[in-house]
Computed example of a mutant assay.
Amino acid sequence: MSQQRHGNTPGKTGAVPAFPDLPEATIARLPEYLRALHNLAETGADTVSSEGLAAAAGVNSAKLRKDLSHLGSYGTRGVGYDVALLIDQIEYILGLDQRRAVALVGVGNLGHALAGYDGFASRGFRIVALFDADPERVGKPINGLLVRHIDELGRAVVEEGITIGVIATPAGAAQGVADELVTAGVTSILNFAPCVLSVPAGVDVRKVDLAIELQILSFHEHRKASLTALPGGRAEQAGNQEAVGS
């Protein structure tokens, strides 16, 4: 989270206007802009051009300017964007001006790693409760928190003000956990289990499947190998060059 604040609140000059209706693609890119801005702030940069920020975030500058215009931020010609102000604007839109309490369910290998990840705190989130159904895991400390039994989930959600739940259980248990989270009042779920969850309207689910990401990379590797093997591909070109040079 940014330590630099300008006191901007919605409705004041230079602040974010009434909460904007952002395209999903823009929402997905805002965290990348925020990461790049924090890196710039750490180097002491006060301003950044749209080209410089776009390069740091890995997008083209026209797309970045359009995205930021939805926030009411247009930069200053010849100067660029105020880094600290833009951090404030994006953090407000992403709801990171308040630290979100998160519950993590499932502390196997993946869950244990997530529970010990320090990067969440610096990005506006705090894991306040860990849960599992395995008696051998319940009561064990992880990163300063004791693993609680899943039966305590409902009470913990109320006591800790939890609105986001992370599921890191096996696929077979994920839907049941999602149901318990929703019943307890959790309205946003990050699902690491390799399955599709069914949730009621008003509950948002984001799915992270590392195997799918690897399969997509496998496709790209397969495509590159296929292109190399085609007539006129790199392998044939290399063979032709060797023939010319011999």
Rank of each mutant, 00 (worst) to 15 (best):
T76Q: 14
Y74F: 13
Q3Y: 14
K63I: 10
H38G: 10
V203Q: 14
V128C: 07
L130T: 11
A101V: 04
S69W: 04
A211S: 07
A36L: 10
G202L: 03
M1R: 06
L145Y: 07
N60T: 02
A84S: 10
Y92R: 08
E32S: 11
L146Q: 12
A45T: 04
S246Y: 14
F19H: 12
S50Y: 07
G111F: 01
G11Q: 09
A129F: 01
N60G: 05
A18P: 10
Y117I: 06
G7R: 09
H70F: 15
K66I: 05
A28F: 05
H38A: 10
E42G: 13
V182W: 06
C195Q: 10
G165D: 07
E160C: 03
G106Q: 09
G176T: 02
P170R: 02
L30E: 05
A57T: 04
G72S: 05
T183D: 13
I142R: 02
I127C: 14
F219W: 11
G202V: 09
A243L: 07
G172P: 03
K207G: 03
G119W: 13
T183Q: 10
H220G: 11
R123P: 00
G80Y: 04
P170A: 12
G111I: 03
V79D: 11
A103Q: 08
P31R: 07
A18C: 05
Q175V: 08
A62S: 11
S73D: 12
D88Q: 15
A225I: 12
V199S: 04
H222T: 15
E159W: 00
T187A: 09
A113E: 14
D209W: 15
T26L: 14
R148H: 01
T13K: 12
P17C: 13
I142A: 08
V147D: 08
V244H: 08
G172V: 12
R5I: 13
P23L: 09
G165R: 01
G75R: 02
Y33L: 09
R77Q: 11
D46V: 07
Y81R: 00
A41F: 15
A45P: 00
G95Q: 11
F19V: 14
L210P: 04
E152N: 12
E51V: 12
D132R: 05
D82N: 15
P10W: 05
S2W: 03
I93Q: 13
A171L: 13
A115D: 05
L30G: 00
